[in-house]
Amino acid sequence: MIENIHECAIEASNISKIYGSGNTEVKAMLNVSFTIAKGEVVGLLGPSGAGKSTLLTAIGLINPPTSGQIRIGKDLVMDGPLAMVDVRKFRRKHIGYVFQKANLIPFLTALENVQIALEINDVHHKDARIRAMELLKYLGVGDRKDNLPHMLSGGQQQRVAVARALANKPSLILADEPTAALDSFRGRQVMELFQKVAHEQGAGVLVVTHDHRSLDVFDRTFEMEDGTLMLKS
């Protein structure tokens, strides 16, 4: 089932994020180190303001850390605040994002929302369409392919967002409270989807959540408090 669980999807070493300086200095994240193996689903818990989103944006190459190193796969991508790769290109090829809100492009259909992620990654239009359709079917929303986002339910939108995140077969999927806007049934479905994707496609998945009902889905769970990371289970 998990063939390459010991191969790292991501490795973060002593990463910190400090905003401001002097009297206005805020240490949002301090010397955080962890790894996520490919095929592993990791949960990240913690109260608001603990630094979860800071960690997610740092390892998601959206907001660089102040210090520390981040490796994704075999590549050193961040050395302190310095990007060692073209971050936009790296995000395109290696990282998938899912957020609390689906953040679908409102003027694109469900199919096109997935297709665009593939075309951005230079996949030919026709191939992109086929792959996007496969993903929508895989996630159970194939019949809604021609619907615009506002025609879909919250759960369906989130499935399309997951399909978009998976489109380029990323080695790392980052999810920031993906079930917050869903009812418990739909939330559970999405969490199980991450588990399925991680195990079947070998991607490392980090899920930030407040939802303790889904803890059983995670292979490991971290807890963050005051900018520091602790292994919970």
């Binding site: 995000r91 395109r92 994002y97 409102p106 003027f107 951005i120 990654n121």
Partner: peptide, 16 residues
């Protein structure tokens, strides 16, 4: 703006 930010997040080139 929000859609453009999303496109940038998923790696869209400036040319797009």
């Amino acid at each position: 703006i929000h859609d453009i930010a999303m496109l940038k997040l998923i790696g869209a080139r400036n040319s797009l």
